[in-house]
Design a protein around this nucleic acid. Sequence first.
DNA 1: TTAGGGTTAG
Length: 775
Amino acid sequence: MALLLPRISKTHRNLWKSTPPPIIFSKQLTGTACSNHYASDTDTDPSLVSALISIFTKRPFSPDDPELKTLAPRLTTKAVESVLNGIRSWKTAHVFFTWAPNQCGYTHNCYTYNAMASHLSRARQNAPLRAMAMEVVSSNCSLTPGALGFFLRCLASVDLVQEANFFFDQVTAKGLCVPNSYSYNCLLEAISKSKSNSIELLEMRLQEMRDSGWEFSKHTLTPALQVYCNAGKFEKALNVFNEMYERGWVDAHVMSILVVSFSKWGEVDKAFDLIERMEDHKLGLNEKTFHVLIHGFVRQSRVDKALQLFDKMRKSGFALDISLYDVLIGGLCKNKELEKALSMYSEMKALGIHADAGILAKLIPSFSDEVEMIRVLEEVQGDLDEEDMLLLCTSVLNGLTNNGSIDKAYQLLQAMMQYESDSEGEVDKILVVMKRVRPVTTNFKIVIDGLLRFGKFDMALSLYKDMIQIGCKPNVSIYNNLIDALCNSDRLDESYKLLREMEQSGLEPTHFTHNSIFGCLCRRQDVVAALNLVKEMRACGHEPWIKYSTLLVKQLCKHEKVVEACNFLDNMVHEGFLPNIVAYSTAINGLVKIQEVDRAVQLFQDICAQGYCPDVVSHNILISGLCKAKRVSEAESLLDEMVMKGLVPSVVTYNLLIDGWCKTSHVDKAILCLSRMFGEDREPNVITYTTLIDGLFNAGRVDDALVLWNNMGRKGCAPNRIAYMALITGLCKCGRPDEALVYLREMEEKEMKPEIFVYAAVVSARLSELNLPRQ
DNA sequence: TTAGGGTTAG
């Protein structure tokens, strides 16, 4: 392709460089190009042009108008161009444009094509524009590079980017045009408007330009920057920007491309910073960019910056329209900044901008009381159609439900259900308004959800039945919420009934539906039903939530049904749902709790062999079991094993061992364990200290216990109720009731309530001191 | 709308 392009002399190139193309379509472009080309034409006869315009715009238009026959022989391309530019309607222009080449001796040229193309692109008439591009090529119409650029811009302005590329290639291949850098820049601008990633195409065209000796200008690099920004290619975009910066080509348009891109990339602060730097250089954003940025900032949940931008826009004197208020009020409502939203609403009213249903729907839930919400609805109802009224009614129902006025919402929905019924004699005006709107599924969902939130399950169920009654179909979400709420109150039969109704109505249960019921069965410890449901879930490809499986295991273990718990886990494996380490740890803990330590160890080893990697908590559970069984040395070996595996023992791990050593009368080993904690940089907690203090008292080492108590305080570890109770009972056990009493008072001063046995210990110790003779 | 659960002291 590049071979078709002639080498251009340096002076010629510089000419193009010094006259950059205008950014926006301009009549001047068409005019200038035309007058140059048709310098030899006789001047257009104004009477001919006005006569043609008059005939073609006259209603009814008749192609057989005798005057046309006399005018036809005088037709020139220049006249056709003037007529096309003088007609307002694209359709009329098209009729004239089609009529002209049927006249003897007349053929369109590139300027008449462009005049028509301009009409079609402004009217967004893509199909005829596309057809015209093909016609230009097939009719072998020559184009100047400027005319080619203009046509490309027409195509690009209606997103016919592929067509623009194809057209460019066709006219160059057929030799109808020798494109220059301007034509290329127009093509690049078209490419930069493409919605799809067009980096490859851009780079290909840039290479073609280089190969043909065309110099790059601001108008070459601006679309390049746009393409890289659109594709999120930061590095490449930065390179282009730097080049533009060095050449002094950065202008407000270039900056706007960057600002909008930063906004799209979520870098709102950077975008804002850039805007402020633009202001320092007296570069302003245009109205469209302000709009794009305000919408973009709100989309990025940065209403703060959007508001600041809105303020700048206001100060720059731009018109503030409803769409801006809409997006800002929407953003503020979403952020729960209701006061600000309402103040924007007042501001827009003061400016004489009428809020539409969309804005009102966003605002209604911000009103604090139901009277106000309902008043807005009553006020605007005369001006709105049914669709808008439905939007507002939905918003009112939402607002009432969120405000806790669920009964009012229920009452209004009941009124909507009496759609178009007789309202004569109705006292409550709002009910009359509501009866004019037919309720839809969303309305039922809002009120049913509200009722469920307030625990009014029976009302919710009855509303569900009502909606079916009036022919409104419940959706998945309504079924899920009803089923979940019923399951949470253990109303299992009704949940199953709804599940079946859901399936019969053609709706597929989701994993949430199934898991609601699965959770209920697990809470009930109904292993058989749970496994049956799991089979059903497997058929649907739904995975049972592990938290419920674990819950079932825990419940079974709590009731000493550890064997059943283990069997359940085996069955889950059989169904293809592998329990995780947490579920297994729960079962291991169950075994520990019924003193089946060997079986606990066995299960632990089994799952290790299956490839599970028990974590710190799983190890702690086993260590706790071994300690309780007084197999503390084995427990300590397990600690070493953990470390070898790369696990970092937790405070709980050490606490368990300290307790183990204390309870087996090896307090010194427990103290060693505490030192090990310090060595490992593991901060002991109140449980560590309490455990050891209790151990020291039991070993009769009162002073050591008291030293540790004081150390604990010094280390900033505040004793809690259990720690105090251990200290007091410990002192009593060691025959120091007076000191015990001091700490008991201290404990009471801190408003910690001791258990009865603490008082009993003090009393008992006191009595021992008295050494009363046995009766 | 939806997960993540299991271990320690008197």
